[in-house]
Design a protein around this nucleic acid. Structure first.
Lengths: 186, 186
DNA sequence: ACCTGAACACCGTTCAAGT
DNA sequence: ACCTGAACACCGTTCAAGT
């Protein structure tokens, strides 16, 4: 008689889960908390997501798009080394602004579609190919992304305890990599 | 009358927990599994550790010592760039051999004593100071450790999906950083 | 078609009771 | 002094019952 009564859309659920993870980390995501945030009981969430892991995967996708959007904005109107530096700064700034979402993006990277992931890294690849030359483009991309990921991970979880300027270390690392990769200076 | 009956020493508990985490990851560590492995009931573990987190912290310390030992061995009888490369290879090899222990070492780095942590990184710092010069030693150390951590993290969780030789990318990254940091070539 | 309460098998943790 | 069973408050997940 009264068949449909949607109280929580898929987008509302993902958005609520995103906010919870952003504030408390992925370990702090409980289905009861998500359900309460969208005005529903926990079992109802299984109408939209097969499991807690599937919901986290959806949040991961959303976070990846947020990061990709920041990178695109940073790249606009810049070329070469300036574009690489601008994107590195944007990458680090987003990771520091959303440490828990950043961590979620990088755990279980093997799962999930590659679409959003490559959308996020494509701009970096273009610039680095120009800098390092086509033969070394992939190697250079892995050097830069490894440094970026490692640096912001260690910064976010407090691994830099030896003093000194962390900002200066980041700039030094970028410059040293650019020097070491640039085919023009070899 | 029968006051003492130690069935599980602290070391046995940590060792059992280490093995469980090595096999199933830190999320797979349950106190019931640890208790069963050492022939005891779960509540008894609270005589030795205040919480699950405290037990994990002890395992983290053990893992850090294992890594530090590998780095020391790799450094023996080597100097300069050869020592840096050998330690980088040893670092990556251990991370690939014990991916779950490696991940444990790098989450919650802020907590816990710095003793074992600095023991693990000290040899790397020495060599890099010689390479980059005293003014840039700390910056160079952060560049290298960020690259190492980022690279093996991404390798371990399957982030390198664009083909190509991952070994070659690691060697390229190391060489590019050494080129970019070496004060003699600037 | 969607939502719900109740139930299930698990957690980490506490504590009084045993020896 | 150490170990234990029982209990507590939580999980994620399933499912029959409601509308």
């Amino acid at each position: 008689m009264c068949p449909a009564q949607v109280k929580a859309t898929t987008d509302e659920i993902v958005s609520a889960a995103r906010d919870i993870i952003a504030q408390s980390g992925s370990a702090g995501l409980s289905l009861s908390a998500v359900a309460e945030a969208v005005g529903v009981r926990a079992p109802s969430l299984y109408k939209r997501f097969a499991s807690r892991a599937a919901l986290m995967s959806a949040v991961r996708e959303v976070a990846l798009h947020e990061l990709a959007s920041r990178l695109r904005v940073a790249q606009q109107k810049k070329r070469g080394r300036a574009a690489v530096r601008a994107m590195a700064d944007a990458y680090r700034a987003w990771a520091k602004r959303e440490p828990h979402l950043y961590q979620l993006v990088h755990e279980h990277a093997a799962a999930g579609p590659t679409a959003a992931a490559s959308a996020a890294t494509a701009p970096v690849l273009e610039e680095l190919a120009a800098l390092a030359g086509p033969d070394n483009a992939l190697h250079a991309a892995r050097l830069f992304t490894s440094f970026l990921h490692g640096f912001v991970s260690m910064e976010n979880n407090g691994s830099f305890k030896m003093g000194g300027s962390v900002d200066a270390a980041f700039a030094f690392g970028l410059d040293a990599m650019i020097r070491g990769v640039d085919r023009g200076s070899r």
